[in-house]
Simulated scan of single mutants.
Amino acid sequence: MRVALVHDWLVTMGGAERVLEVLAELYPDAPIYTGVVDYRALSPTLQKRKIIPSLVQGWPRATRWYNRYLPGLAYAMEQFDLRAYDVVISSSSAVAKGVLTPAETLHVSYVHTPMRYAWDLYPVYYHEEARGLTRRLMGPVFHYLRLWDRLSADRVDVMVANSHTVQQRIQKHYRRSASVIYPPVAVDRLTVNPVPGRYYLVLSRLVRYKRVDLAVLAANRLREPLVVAGDGPERKALERLAGPTVRFVGRISEPEKIRLMQEAKALIFPGEEDFGIVPVEMQAVGRPVIAFGRGGVLDTVKPGETGWFFAEQSVDAVVEAIKSGDRVNWDPELIRRHALAFGTDRFRDEFSLLMKRALARESPDDRIRLETRVKDGDRG
Rank of each mutant, 00 (worst) to 15 (best):
T165D: 14
L145P: 07
I32S: 02
D81V: 06
E281F: 02
D157T: 12
E234K: 06
A103Y: 14
E78P: 05
I252E: 06
W119R: 13
H127M: 07
V315F: 01
A130D: 12
H127D: 15
R373S: 11
R198N: 05
P288L: 10
A284C: 12
A284T: 14
A161V: 03
Y75G: 09
R64Y: 13
A218Y: 00
R150A: 13
R175E: 09
W65N: 14
L222M: 10
A237R: 15
V187N: 02
P364T: 12
P28A: 02
D316N: 10
P244W: 08
V374M: 01
L238A: 06
K302I: 13
E263G: 08
G230W: 09
K97L: 01
R40W: 07
K50P: 06
P123Y: 12
Y144F: 12
A161K: 12
R367W: 14
R198F: 00
K172S: 11
V195T: 15
R367I: 07
A76W: 01
Y33K: 06
I52M: 11
L359S: 11
S152F: 07
S92C: 14
V156S: 01
S352G: 11
I89G: 00
Y39L: 13
A94S: 15
L26D: 02
P270S: 11
T300C: 09
R357N: 09
M261S: 00
W59T: 07
V315C: 01
R205D: 01
H338A: 11
P225I: 09
S93I: 14
D299W: 07
L100Y: 13
P31C: 02
S177I: 06
E21F: 01
N162Y: 12
P225N: 10
I290Q: 11
G230E: 04
P279G: 07
I181C: 12
A339W: 04
V6C: 00
L241Y: 03
T344L: 08
N193S: 10
I290T: 04
L206A: 02
D331C: 11
L106P: 08
